[in-house]
Design a protein around this nucleic acid. Structure first.
Lengths: 322, 322
DNA sequence: TGGTTTCCATAATGATCGGTTATGATCGCC
DNA sequence: GGCGATCATAACCGATCATTATGGAAACCA
């Protein structure tokens, strides 16, 4: 198929017709548009043969629009205005005078990281609208893949001591925001409460309080390495509840620093693990979205809120398969 | 000056963005528009680098519009609709389903020629709007030159027997509608009332009734050729009044056939002149307007109303200088 | 009236645009 | 793990759309 259904009127043509109508001659229309006179002359000729209509009446050395020509000049106003509006809207987005970022972050980051990010963003680019939704990494990444989200703040536990992440990050780009140390939280009355560090094997007999599914998986993985299978007595995704349970002496729990720094925990002891275990806090987006100004601004704000200088540690690593 | 202010958004681009939004993929957008897939791919790329903005988010093998892309797709609707409207209006004019003709004709043609023309036009193209104004040739031609008129119906006396016309017809095209024989009108009581033909010199002693300035000029010219200077006793542009004056025996007059065929004139005799004198009835327009469908239709109708087959006698002679 | 100016038209030229076909890379699916 | 669908890229090609240079005709003016 040849597929030659070329439209007979285009925006450029309309603009020329309007200029002729306004200026009254080809020459001054050309000047007004920044073209030379023959350009207008040919443009009109092309338009006339495309429409199969006489658009301009040449009488002597003056030109006048025919009825058809006036029709085009009249429509030009609306079309060009709409085009300008579109262009303006685009440049507004490009210049961060407009735009939208849809952010999804996991619950425990909502406490400090996200509010700080939103504040930075608001101060720096007050005209872009930021949407925030709380979601665990599996859901936020799904939303990202699905096009319902621009930036996902996720976390990934390190498997053993190698930085292998358990999510499927193919096709996505990640930006490392911070490392979040995981600590063992025990009641202050616990015999090991004042140790320098905690070796997990020493707590194999405890009752355990587990968090979200992935956190629970991480606990099981660490315990397995330490050679035991933890007795999980309680499960709750609410870290404040976890700390409450520990305070009440109902068990011990693994809690990341990000939580401990945000929530009050006077009546529990948070011991560093030995060997240490961390999770990475990551900002995730797609290669294309990364180049959208509003998204880029959000990523920068996230890095800044996380304390890592966005200029120094872009740390863009494309994740390998899970 | 280089004058490179090329607009960053054009109608074609908008159409492509809208197609992508509607179809959900480059390939089906290409099918919908009758293009191949790479055409869409490149079009998007060009648009993106012209706007300096990411318009499409490629994730895996699916594509989605970014916010900026959605902006374009949204504006596309209005712009394309306006463009279609303009196009439709043009083709309506081209197809005589719309359009306008502004006709100006000299008074004595209003009697028969113009009404017949309007009737033909109305029957044949009921959707075009015809405007009619009565005006003597100098004014109607001025209107034509001025752009206030599309077709002027004028008359031109032949100077002597050569077809030299006294109007400035440069830059205009004329279409000969009919030849109008000029007769000498005398009261039926006149001694020469029943002659076969009238030799002008025989009436040098009469009192004359003159018409419009150009008709008066024609009378003077003919009389001059016949060797006398007519005694013009009355002047009126109203031919009916002229006939009335002749009937009352107040003088003689030169009256063209066009009038005699339309007005009652029982009580006067209309003698052919010897040598004969004619005036040409002409339709005048500009070369460009001539090609406008509605104008062409009007010209055809005029020819038909005048009794000359428009197909056989186009008689397009570009007038020389006066 | 005849020269000058001021228009528009045309020709020759070149860059870019905007399509094509052919081909490659990659994701998702069975 | 091949296969099909999808987008990207390369090479090519014609039409578009601008340029400069030039011509002709109309209007203007002394």
């Amino acid at each position: 198929m040849i597929g030659y259904d070329r439209r007979m009127i285009d925006a450029a043509g309309l603009r020329v017709m309007k200029a002729i109508a306004d200026e009254g001659s080809f020459t001054s229309a050309a000047n007004a548009l920044g073209f030379t006179q023959p350009a207008i002359s040919q443009m009109v000729r092309r338009l006339e043969q495309r429409t199969g209509t006489v658009l301009v009446e040449r009488y002597g050395r003056q030109v006048r629009l025919t009825e058809a020509g006036q029709v085009l000049a009249r429509h030009a106003v609306g079309v060009l205005a709409a085009l300008d509006a579109a262009e303006e809207e685009i440049t507004a987005i490009a210049g961060l005078r407009a735009g939208r970022v849809r952010l999804q972050a996991f619950p425990s980051s909502s406490a400090t990281l996200v509010p700080r990010t939103l504040a930075i963003l608001k101060a720096r680019h007050p005209d872009i609208t930021v949407t925030f939704t709380e979601a665990e990494p599996p859901e936020s990444l799904a939303a990202l893949r699905n096009g319902d989200c621009d930036v996902a703040v996720a976390f990934a536990y390190e498997g053993g001591d190698l930085g292998e992440l358990e999510e499927d990050l193919s096709l996505l780009v990640t930006r490392r925001l911070m490392d979040d140390e995981v600590r063992l939280v025990v009641p202050t009355t616990h015999p090991h409460a004042h140790d320098e560090a905690a070796s997990l094997a020493d707590f194999s007999g405890e009752e355990w309080i587990a968090g979200c599914p992935r956190c629970r998986g991480h606990l099981l993985s660490l315990a397995d390495t330490a050679g035991f299978r933890p007795n999980v007595a309680f499960e709750t995704e609410d870290y404040v509840a976890q700390l409450g349970l520990v305070t009440a002496g109902l068990g011990v729990a693994l809690v990341p620093d990000l939580i401990l720094n945000a929530a009050k925990h006077d009546e529990v002891a948070a011991l560093p693990l030995s060997p240490a275990s961390r999770r990475q806090i990551l900002a995730v987006t797609t290669p294309d979205l990364q180049r959208v100004p509003a998204v880029a601004a959000a990523l920068d704000a996230l890095c800044e809120a996380a304390g890592s200088d966005p200029k120094v540690s872009p740390a863009e690593l494309v994740g390998a398969k899970a």
